[in-house]
Design a protein around this nucleic acid. Structure first.
Length: 713
DNA sequence: CCCCGAATAT
DNA sequence: AATATTCGGG
């Protein structure tokens, strides 16, 4: 059992002193780049000189120049915030493995830092600055790791006394899609909060949540109806352009977050917990057990660097011993392969979970697995030093504590971050949802108890074709970048392979009213399982995406910087794929391409007259958009915005890079979605259909159908 | 009492 | 702006 010790300090000087005092006790240093007094690079340099231990730099600054400079300076890795918990975990594992030699470091082996018992609790957190806010939410959460952190008493008390704050539900596109599906099934007329809620079957979601969203949705519909003409025209214009280029990007792209079409959908509800996002689950990736890239040959996959995702760049030279760590382009595959993934999918967790279980986020990780044998007997305490300012590595603006917990879920076996995790679509970010924890935890145990991924050696990894290409920064709203389109330059186009694995759920697929449509569940009012939605996309969930992007990045470290700020045009083909799941035009599209039609939303009292393209719009608006960014909070803006108006930068991530990394939200993604599908999910039964790009697509079809009067509703 | 939904609060 | 919560009313 490996004992892990993590010491956090709030500034570089403390880090150095700690290292000096306990010389030789640390194996790795993780630091922010921008810190008062000394930059991460300076610290790295010093650390390198004095201790010869690897330093990982993390920062919200995603500028290529900065990254490269950091790596050139000797940083072992560079993690762009928001950091994916998986990345940290990978780092951690990597460090452990590195120290140990070789072998696979799995959760069990890692042992518990979580301290079920005082004696085991080796984790020491010195506390980041600004922890006050983050501290709050700790309650009820699984922050055991923070138990020993040295904080002032006031804070401690505060923590203890602070009432748990209620999580706010974030209506991600995925969640919204579910909502739409439910509404669609019911028909707007009959769509009332309670029924919608039942249909959605999203744990943690309340009627009130739905009611509120419904209210908003209704207003949205009204607005659409009022502006129908306008909308139609816009669409028509775009159509005329014959290329679905830019305009569409806005639909797919969420200015605030990543929009990679590849992102898997995250069917989880994301809730924000005020205090911190402790819910991060680490399941990052993937999974859902679904193969993110079903086709190996899918040369089309486009690596996307999503905004919310962390990117970690490794410095090949830093860890000389493992120069190949980044070599594997397909970490995802590996991740997917791991049996644990499937399990992981089932975990419900919050943010963290969102991403699936294992993510193959970090190539490093992967590499390790591949090459390492076993560490089972390893007993040497591993120490990890974190230097940073305040906030979090992951963020959501929450506290550093959260970060830590989330970051190192693997440290504790029992720690599942599950504490807050919701199953199904709900992603809880933040604290306060302790009530959900119980279940989720247990489920997580499936995965070896942690909900963490198990990295199993993937033989196929080696076989994976090497890809290279420009990495598009889809969601990267990095400084200055206004918006990104789909990377036309990308050599890889998105692959929309559809897999039906999910059907394993045993739900009965219903026959689709239309060929393109997924079958409806024979059971009335049953919506398709969320997981399938993911599947349908053929894309992994975000986590996977992350991984993917990551891989590419690793492959082409130089390209990382190439994250382009330029808007890319979206080719028709791409659009088609996005919208219909394949390059082939969907039946609907073909059928309706011409003429004006009176379209009405299901149950919507308002009629909208629009040209056929409008269908597309609607479809996209309510469905497809989600496929691009499941996790992206749904908003009228994101879905309805059609024109190329300049996208606003995400104030949080894109606008500016905070000189002080602390303030920068590192981890916002809800990261965890759990692909778990409630057994009794009202959505179960949905069958993936090739025609659908995303799970949502299915809905889209239905929805579209209903619009034209052919719908089942 | 349940629950919808507009209004209002945060 | 997005959600949550409140509150009148069926």
């Amino acid at each position: 059992m490996i004992e892990l010790s993590i010491v956090t300090v709030k500034n570089p000087l403390d880090a150095l002193s700690t290292l000096r005092v306990k010389n030789g006790a640390f194996d790795l240093v993780v630091t922010d780049l921008y810190m008062p007094g000394m930059t991460g690079l300076e610290l790295q340099k010093q650390v390198n000189e004095e201790f010869k231990i690897p330093v990982i730099i993390m920062s919200s600054d995603d500028k290529e120049s900065v990254i490269l400079k950091s790596l050139d300076s000797g940083a072992a890795f560079y993690m762009v915030k928001p950091v994916n918990p998986e990345d940290l975990k990978s780092v951690w594992r990597y460090a452990v493995a590195s120290k140990i030699g070789q072998g696979v470091v799995n959760d069990q082996e890692i042992g518990s830092a979580e301290g079920e018992t005082p004696s085991n609790d080796k984790l020491i957190l010195c506390g980041f600055l600004n922890s006050s806010s983050s501290v709050n939410g700790e309650r009820g959460q699984k922050m055991k790791m923070g138990r020993k952190r040295a904080r002032n008493k006031d804070e401690a008390e505060e923590d203890a006394l602070a009432p748990p704050k209620k999580a706010k539900v974030v209506w991600t596109n995925t969640l919204h899609n579910r909502f739409l599906q439910a509404v669609s099934h019911l028909g707007l007329e009959k769509a009332v909060p309670k029924k919608i809620l039942e249909l959605m079957n999203v744990p943690g979601l309340t009627r009130g949540n739905v009611a509120s969203h419904l209210q908003k949705y209704r207003m949205f519909l009204k607005k659409v109806a009022e502006k129908g003409t306008w909308t139609s025209r816009c669409l028509a214009e775009r159509t005329l352009r014959s290329s679905f280029a830019y305009g569409y990007t806005s639909m797919f792209k969420n200015p605030q977050q990543d929009h990679s079409p590849f992102l898997g959908q995250q069917p989880f509800m994301r809730t924000s917990f005020q205090p911190y996002g402790d819910n991060l689950c680490d399941l990052s990736s993937s999974s859902f057990g679904l193969p993110r890239f079903p086709n190996q040959e899918a040369t089309n996959s486009v690596p996307q660097l999503r905004y919310g995702q962390s990117s970690l760049v490794g410095n090949p030279t830093s860890f000389q011993q493992r120069p190949l760590m980044f070599a594997n382009p397909y970490p995802l595959h590996q991740a997917n392969r791991s049996t644990s993934n499937s399990t992981g999918m089932n975990l419900s967790s919050n943010t963290i979970t969102t991403y699936g279980v294992t993510s193959g986020t970090s190539p490093m990780f992967i590499h390790l697995q591949q090459n390492q044998a076993n560490l089972q007997n390893y007993a040497t305490p591993f120490k990890f030093s974190l230097t940073g300012i305040g906030c979090p590595i992951y963020s959501s603006g929450t506290g550093s504590m959260a970060i830590i917990n989330n970051s190192y879920p693997s440290l504790n076996h029992n720690s599942n971050y599950s504490g807050i995790q919701l199953t199904s679509e709900a992603e809880l970010m933040g604290t306060g949802k302790t009530r959900f924890s119980g279940n989720e935890l247990s489920s997580s145990s499936n995965n070896g108890g942690n909900g963490l991924m198990n990295w199993t050696p993937d033989n196929n990894m080696n076989n994976a074709p090497t890809r290279n290409g420009t990495i598009e920064a889809f969601g990267v709203q990095g400084a200055g970048s206004s918006s990104t389109g789909f990377g036309s330059t990308n050599q890889f186009s998105p692959t929309f392979t559809i897999t039906n694995q999910e059907n394993a759920s045993g739900l009965s697929p219903l026959s689709p009213s239309t060929s393109a449509m997924p079958p409806h569940s024979q059971q009335a009012s049953v919506l398709p399982p969320q997981s399938q939605q993911h599947t349908s996309t053929g894309l992994g969930n975000t986590g996977g995406e992350n991984d993917y992007a990551f891989n590419n990045l690793m492959i082409n470290a130089s390209t990382l910087g190439s994250i382009s700020d330029n808007q890319q045009e979206l080719g028709e083909r791409d659009l088609g794929e996005l919208l219909y799941g394949s390059t082939c035009a969907t039946p609907y599209q073909e059928k309706n391409v011409e003429g004006l039609l009176n379209v009405n939303l299901p149950g919507c009292p308002y009629y909208v007259e629009m040209s056929s393209p409008a269908y597309e719009f609607l479809n996209t608006e309510f469905s497809s958009a989600c496929s691009i960014a499941d996790k992206t909070p749904w908003s009228e803006e994101s879905s309805g915005q059609l024109q190329g108006r300049e996208e606003t930068m995400n104030p949080k991530f894109g606008g500016n890079v905070n000189p002080v990394d602390d303030y920068y939200p590192s981890f916002e993604k809800p990261q965890c979605n759990n692909s778990e599908e409630p057994a009794d999910s009202a959505l179960n039964g949905m069958n993936l259909n090739e025609a659908s790009i995303s799970g949502n697509e299915d809905w889209g079809e239905d929805f579209l159908n209903s619009l034209i009067g052919n719908g089942p509703y």
